[in-house]
Design a protein around this nucleic acid. Sequence first.
DNA 1: CTGAAAGCGCTTACAG
DNA 2: CTGAAAGCGCTTACAG
Lengths: 339, 339
Amino acid sequence: MTIKEIAQICGVSRGTVDRVLNHRGKVKPETEALILRTIHRMGYTKNIAGKALTVRKNAPVFGALVSSEGNPFFDDVIAGFRKAEEELTDYGVTVLLRTMRGYDVQRQLSLMDELDESGIAVLIVQAINDERIEKRIRALAEKGIATITVNTDIENSCRLCYVGSDYNSGGETAAGVMKLVTRGQANLGIVTGVNTLLGHVQRLEGFERHLKDICPDIRTIDRVSAMDDMEHSYRMTLDMLRRHPEIDTLFVTASGTFGTCRAVIELGRERSMQVVSFDSVPSTMEMMRRGLVRAVICQQPFLQGYQAVRAAFDVLLTGTSKQGEQIIMENQVKILENL
Amino acid sequence: MTIKEIAQICGVSRGTVDRVLNHRGKVKPETEALILRTIHRMGYTKNIAGKALTVRKNAPVFGALVSSEGNPFFDDVIAGFRKAEEELTDYGVTVLLRTMRGYDVQRQLSLMDELDESGIAVLIVQAINDERIEKRIRALAEKGIATITVNTDIENSCRLCYVGSDYNSGGETAAGVMKLVTRGQANLGIVTGVNTLLGHVQRLEGFERHLKDICPDIRTIDRVSAMDDMEHSYRMTLDMLRRHPEIDTLFVTASGTFGTCRAVIELGRERSMQVVSFDSVPSTMEMMRRGLVRAVICQQPFLQGYQAVRAAFDVLLTGTSKQGEQIIMENQVKILENL
DNA sequence: CTGAAAGCGCTTACAG
DNA sequence: CTGAAAGCGCTTACAG
């Protein structure tokens, strides 16, 4: 079934069928009804191979916005963007990347505007979980620009789809790893992340809830926040460990593992401490080789970036399929051997 | 840069450029040289969006051949085939699947012939590591049919590329997991796989070599072969455990985990035994929920199938890129929480 | 050995 | 509101 055949059956031109298919209006209601009926009856679907060739003429630009500055986790996400971009060069696609440091809502808004003004076809964003961001996403949607959230999702928004991990399950997985590492006996210190990021909150909840179930004997001694910052993480851990010499196990819920480890080493407690954390960034890998970090839970950052761009391309080819969908990366346990 | 532009520059028709690009011959040597030089100078590459539309007319068929019968691991590989096939329907692609039971070389050869006679464009095969198979792959290559090995590779062959895991690294990962699970103290029984499968051999080697390094105190008490068969695995484990009551840890290198576990349970040794194995097939997951299997190493079977078909499609679009390439799936550690 | 034409399925101006 | 024509980049017969 092609547009041509539908046009023949309906006794109209292919242009008219195209107008109906793409809601461009300017078609007599009766004609439209006839065409819609025929499309439905024949089970017609648009052929993406044909569509691809016309997409190319527009040279669509995807906007991508992540808080990657000072956070090496996003190097892989960005590499994923680039890989997909490379695969899509023949389709005329480019990815316009904007990066920021930290999670300031005004900053994210202004970069969203900047991308919008560049005439992007789709927005990919590591959204801060804030009402103002949600509103801006809605405004873009009304202009016909779909938004795909990557890595961390935003609640109650009309983003088209989310590409990233299941943080709750990531937290539970961390609890399971903790059981393996500690045998269910530990004095635990927790270093948390950023509480305006939905994912960080869900991860900690998942961890604590599940740990209580499977390791009732693990005592959580203290809890500090690293704010996704190395330096902060270092100082907060140092304080915590000085206050609580009995802590023998650390759980780092977001970035900051290296800072935490530095504090442990500086206090000369490397031998008696074990750390479980997230994401195999280079500095964390170093601490795994050193034996301090026993295992990390990873969320396939490269694939997140790659799939986000592919999903954006899908939007172009097929219109708004994937509406409300979630493209979830599995949580992987990594030890030294499968890094 | 398009064929049209190249043709203009060279003062020939696009048909002639096409003949050169696709080595169809029948072009005057001087003309060919001129065109090749121009292509090179302009950095022309074939646009896959254009090519895709013509591929469709041929309705290419990919042949896929795996030993999935009686081995649920391949359910996911096949689901991956189907997913990719579905994504490629608009390009007219279909996947013709043939399955077999076990690893009989003659059987694999005859199914390869069957697929060949069906007029497949590319062959995807879980190759037995045997010279006769290697020869048949060579014969297909000479006829212009590229072969992609999936899940397990074949040595010294001219297959186009391999899609699957790194078994040696999978074995090392298993050793690392073993260290976490046992704390470096165990009396180990090993249940091995099929020795005509390259992957199974490499996996065991990787495991034993690395385990010696990181857990010198783990003693390997005995070693039996399950031949990738549930029933066999059950009986061999039963025998082994009767012979060696001191075994407290089991390592299953290939399929057969469920049979092994049944033997443990039947002997009433479930409480004192811990099992590490591969691949989260349903029956293994059941044993994880039961607490007998502590962790498994997975090789992303779905992705293997999916990527194999995508690689086959790439061959069609771009000719023989990916020559000799390996598309390697990461080994994932799975525990109950991230299944 | 080579070119002109038609086609894959979809879109896009343009003319009416 | 609608159709005829041209185009995206590649291939495929066909005619010479």
